[in-house]
Design a binder for these strands. Structure first.
Lengths: 206, 206
DNA sequence: GGATATTTTTGCGTGCCGCGCATATTTGCC
DNA sequence: GGCAAATATGCGCGGCACGCAAAAATATCC
């Protein structure tokens, strides 16, 4: 089923996305031209825009893919698992660090995180990332509707769950990036965030 | 305190934002050039970019303002009010329709809603709207932290509340726009969404 | 295995955008 | 009225997103 054609396409897309992130984290978002990204992958500038509508979209593509995988992961969870447990686990699965990051030597890693942080501060990027999250949210809502037997068309429930879950992950990531020299592992933050949301976020006792 | 200078600035900004929305809803997002918007307000194209970094930002500006007002409204709510009650009411306050919409004759209003819907489908717009929501979310989180006596720097709680509230409003609005000939008033949808979130979004009985 | 159909890449051209910079104009203040 | 600060404008540049058509790569069929 997965012919040479599709595979190559997926590879090119991934390469472009990765190159875009890499370059932007290294030298800053607007010191990277589309031309540079294309060149790094060995493809014409015009081809870049066959894959992505904008530089920002390319950078956000990994975020999009990960978010989409969360929806897919939820569908894989056993049907008798509690909804919020399943959601938490589905999200957590996406945060095991890949080998290309794991293999980084420590000083390079620190510099890398700094670069990413700076990059994410770019307004144009934030919009695109949020949009990616919104696209994935629709998928997630569909998966939730399926699992809970609710109607996506008439009820807000599945969308609310998807939005809340997405927000939980977002806040956890933000918290993780904000605290320099991360003391708390991201997995713990995500679990914590989901727990609070599932509890209805009650006001703490004064 | 509010001198002529600031007032004029605010007026120009509002006029540009409104003109941008109006034109985009009327003839479609990319049939509107920055030049057109500037001309409609009687200002130079260069000046447009003194107020907004992009066409999309101008269109999203009203959304941003409304979201910021929600945070301000929360601060005005009595301190002894339940958190989620206060949040709901603060959000609701922003959805009383302004006179410029209320005064529209019915056929024009239908056409208007359609135009807005199409406009909001534009990817570039979605990103910018979401970014606006994120900016306001930070304000809201600060207000929540204040009210609940939690620490914005070390706890995720206030950000989670702000994100969930923002998501609730977003879902309600989406639901409202999606259902043609809106049967349910937006106020009811918002109240409903907040209630569900505050209850922890439990899975419905099967 | 070779011809044909389909998909993908590429080059080129176009219109618009975002913004830096210098200048003119307006506003606030004494 | 005059001076300092803020704001509006004109000009120009580099880059981006994308339509279109030709060329190259890949799949398909006999």
């Amino acid at each position: 089923m997965t012919g040479l054609r599709e595979r190559k396409k997926a590879e090119t897309r991934a390469a472009l996305g990765w190159a875009a992130i890499h370059l932007a984290a290294e030298r800053g978002y607007d010191n990277v031209r589309v031309e540079d990204i294309a060149e790094a992958v060995g493809v014409s500038p015009r081809t870049f825009n066959n894959y992505f509508a904008s530089k920002a979209e390319a950078i956000a593509s990994r975020h999009l893919d990960r978010s989409l995988r969360t929806a897919a992961a939820l569908r894989e969870r056993p049907a008798d698992e509690q909804l919020w447990v399943a959601l938490t686990k589905a999200a957590l699965e996406q945060f095991t660090r890949g080998p290309e990051v794991e293999a980084m030597p420590s000083p390079a890693h620190t510099q890398w995180v700094t670069g990413v942080r700076t990059m994410l501060a770019e307004p144009a990027l934030q919009g695109e990332r949020l949009r990616a999250a919104a696209v994935a949210e629709a998928e997630l809502a569909a998966a939730v509707a399926e699992r809970t037997g609710t109607d996506l068309a008439t009820e807000m429930y599945p969308r609310l769950v998807a939005a809340a879950a997405s927000a939980a992950v977002g806040v956890a990531m933000q918290h993780y990036l904000d605290s320099a020299d991360p003391p708390a592992p991201i997995e713990h933050l995500i679990t914590d965030a989901f727990t609070q949301v599932a509890a209805g976020l009650p006001a703490p006792p004064r």
